[in-house]
Design a protein around this nucleic acid. Structure first.
Length: 302
DNA sequence: AAATACAACAACCGCCTAGAA
DNA sequence: GTTCTAGGCGGTTGTTGTATT
């Protein structure tokens, strides 16, 4: 018969993850790599469903994830693709923003962009239709002509933004746990660990304090966390230098070289759609922005 | 200062598909 | 070919933090 069940529902812990659980999970993935999620709770002793482990990793702990502070360009991409694809293709939309998770994009859409668009549309109803609109999109008020200015004003990485990716990569490269546990205990004493990126940074920071900094094998500078290379150059050998390349995805809709999730032809085709107008628009945007740091994956596809 | 409302986001739930037995 | 599960995805909920009254 089929496979055994992934986990018995009894005794499975739910709710926010603790720093200790994160450490255990990261340590396990450090050794075994992501995948085979069923074995994660069994091998690590985590009282979590395999699904929960996968989600925690892909949405929060995975290196290469950028969190918070969506730029104007990112907003534009999301709004544009959402208007074309609807709400059922967050994963596909996420593939255009390589370091954002579908969950993050979905949340951002539901909490910010939906309201913003509604407001803009209300303004449009009063003051007339928006001046510039993306190709063939109803209700898309993204202004391409002002966009360049918006992007140049926006600091894509946000000064002082906690940037977990680098830190986690370093943690993984550092291969140590005991100093980390002290930091974990400290962070655990605060009541709201799960929703605080700063706490993870603190946690990882504690680890870093106690360990000599490992050499950076990714493309991010540890100090100002800006990409040292555009992502298109990361698609080749340089991306292989990442501790994990999982964070580097390629747009699933375009059928280019794809990342960890869509490296299977069948799956990739699932996410493909006749979207030449999107491609054209994105390509124009990329050209206009001369590889804005948020749109680096587009030009390599042509 | 306390109570209430709102915003943000992490995590769970349920469904679907691919693939293993 | 059939059954059953793992993994993936989108929708939704619950919790926490912040702003307002």
């Amino acid at each position: 018969m089929g496979r055994p069940p992934c986990c018995d529902k009894l005794g499975v812990k739910k709710g926010p993850w603790t720093p200790e659980e994160d450490i255990i999970l990261v340590s396990y993935i450090q050794e075994h790599g992501p995948g085979n999620w069923r074995s994660v709770p069994v091998s690590t002793g985590l009282m979590r469903c395999s699904k929960s482990c996968r989600l925690r990793w892909t949405n929060y702990l995975r290196p290469g994830i950028k969190r918070g502070n969506f730029t104007s360009h990112e907003e534009g991409v999301i709004v544009h693709l959402q208007s074309l694809l609807g709400n059922s293709r967050w994963a596909a939309i996420a593939s255009y923003l390589p370091r954002r998770t579908d969950n993050d994009i979905k949340n951002y859409w539901n909490t910010h962009l939906k309201k913003k668009l509604r407001k803009q549309q209300a303004m449009g109803a009063i003051f007339g239709p928006p001046a510039a609109s993306s190709p063939g999109t109803a209700g898309d008020n993204f202004d391409h002509h002002n966009h360049h200015d918006m992007v140049s004003r926006a600091d894509g990485y946000g000064a002082g933004q906690a940037y977990i990716n680098t830190e986690v990569s370093q943690l993984i490269a550092g291969r140590g746990q005991s100093p980390f546990a002290d930091a974990a205990a400290e962070v655990c004493s605060s009541s709201s660990y799960a929703s605080s990126v700063d706490n993870i940074s603190k946690l990882l920071g504690g680890f870093m304090k106690s360990s000599p900094p490992p050499p950076l094998h990714n493309n991010y500078d540890a100090d100002d966390v800006k990409p040292l290379l555009p992502l298109d150059s990361m698609s080749g050998t340089s991306s292989a230098e990442l501790s994990f390349t999982a964070g580097v995805q390629q747009p699933a809709l375009m059928g280019g070289r794809v990342g960890y999730e869509y490296d299977d032809e069948t799956k990739r085709q699932q996410h493909q759609a006749p979207l030449s107008s999107i491609e054209k628009w994105l390509f124009d945007e990329a050209a206009e922005l001369e590889l804005s740091d948020e749109c680096y994956s587009v030009p390599m596809l042509f």
